[in-house]
């Protein structure tokens, strides 16, 4: 895009700045729109699995429900508890929301259509997603209230636990692709399965990693069945208890933004990103970003499906799953994958 603005007669610096800002808007605005839509989709999927109707009043099929909710929340009064630590109380939802948008910078939407094509793209995503815990912890602490505090404790333990196994799972993918750059990782999946299927998921060594990544990403984003940080039967609404109005909405948007990001990561790392699912010339007529969106949508459907059908975990079960099952198994697979790759001369 820089070349296009340079063609208009701008010097390189200005063209680069303008094209970067355009890129940010081109990613951030659709992501926010997508967040509003997936909240609607989530409620619809959940409703139809419970044999209810779900939102069906605002707009055709209730499709504008999220925007109505947004308007309602926007017009509400912001209440700050008098005992709260005011500055941190207001910063916390902003951190959550910003972090959910930041990581999209390195997701490739098409070959070459990537905002920041950096060498350490996957590490950047790990770094940014490790920031997500601060929004919750700060919210819980600054509310100066019991239940948010418990929730913050749970959140920090939970997110650290599952980040470890996610790290090992990502190492398996990186070993196979030979790069931290997400664009290169997608390219490495080109014709991966028998020269026909695009995607790491079809390898017997990486398929279990995909399943574990899916489960870990649910724990990492605190989605059901791992939504112990806002378990309403124990903690009222968890870290959001004291929040109202836009601050609450920012948490809400940030949470779904993180879920979408995890779905995008899932699609990029295991399902071939912007590549079509199989190698057929006709499928390449459909642009890459549509394939990516379809894969993200499928991933999100799995998230909703699990939320609608699986009961909530107990906290000790969550910790046991993270430390006693996922950590050793993912470590074992790092050995298996690197051993297999060494034996087959992948690195030669």
């Amino acid at each position: 895009m820089t070349a296009f603005f340079q063609g208009l007669g701008l010097p390189f610096g200005a063209a680069w700045a303008i094209s970067t800002i355009c890129g940010i808007l081109l990613i951030a605005l659709p992501v926010m729109l997508a967040v509003a839509m997936v909240i609607y989709v989530d409620r619809k999927v959940w409703a139809s699995m419970a044999l209810r109707r779900g939102p069906n009043v605002v707009g055709p099929f209730g499709i504008l429900q999220s925007f109505a909710d947004g308007l309602k929340v926007f017009l509400q009064e912001t209440i700050i508890p008098s005992a709260a630590n005011k500055g941190l109380f207001l910063i916390a939802p902003i951190i959550t929301f910003t972090v959910a948008l930041l990581a999209w910078a390195v997701i490739p939407f098409n070959s070459g259509a990537i905002l920041a094509d950096i060498n350490v793209g996957l590490l950047y995503i790990l770094a940014i997603s490790s920031l997500g815990v601060y929004g919750i912890v700060i919210a819980g602490w600054s509310s100066n209230s019991k239940y948010p505090f418990f929730s913050a404790m749970r959140a920090s333990a939970q997110m650290i636990s599952y980040e470890v196994s996610i790290g090992f799972i990502l190492i398996c993918v990186v070993l196979w692709a030979g790069s931290f750059n997400l664009n290169d990782i997608v390219k490495a999946q080109h014709g991966f399965g028998l020269g026909f299927i695009n995607g790491f998921w079809c390898s017997p060594l990486l398929f279990p990693m995909w399943v574990m990544f899916l489960i870990s990403s649910m724990a990492e984003t605190q989605r059901a069945p791992f939504d112990l940080t806002e378990a309403e039967s124990e903690l009222v609404a968890g870290y959001q208890t004291e929040y109202s109005s836009m601050a609450f909405a920012l948490f809400w948007l940030g949470e779904y933004g993180n879920v979408l990001l995890m779905c995008a990561l899932n699609a990029t790392l295991f399902w071939g990103g912007y590549l079509p699912p199989v190698e057929l010339a006709i499928l390449y007529w459909i642009p890459g970003w549509i394939w990516l969106i379809l894969k993200i949508a499928f991933g999100f459907f799995v998230f909703s499906w699990v939320k609608a059908t699986v009961p909530r975990y107990r906290y000790d079960q969550l910790m046991r799953l993270g430390w006693k099952i996922f950590l050793p198994v993912s470590l074992l697979f790092v050995f298996l994958v690197s051993g297999y790759l060494m034996a087959t001369g992948h690195f030669a």
């Binding site: 590490l123 950047y124 770094a127 815990v133 601060y134 912890v137 602490w141 920090s156 333990a157 980040e163």
Partner: peptide, 17 residues
């Protein structure tokens, strides 16, 4: 990136905790 992952993402969380 390692600085952010290790210090911000893990060590500082434990400090804060």
């Amino acid at each position: 990136m390692l600085l952010v992952i290790v210090y911000v993402g893990a060590v500082a969380v434990l400090f804060l905790f």
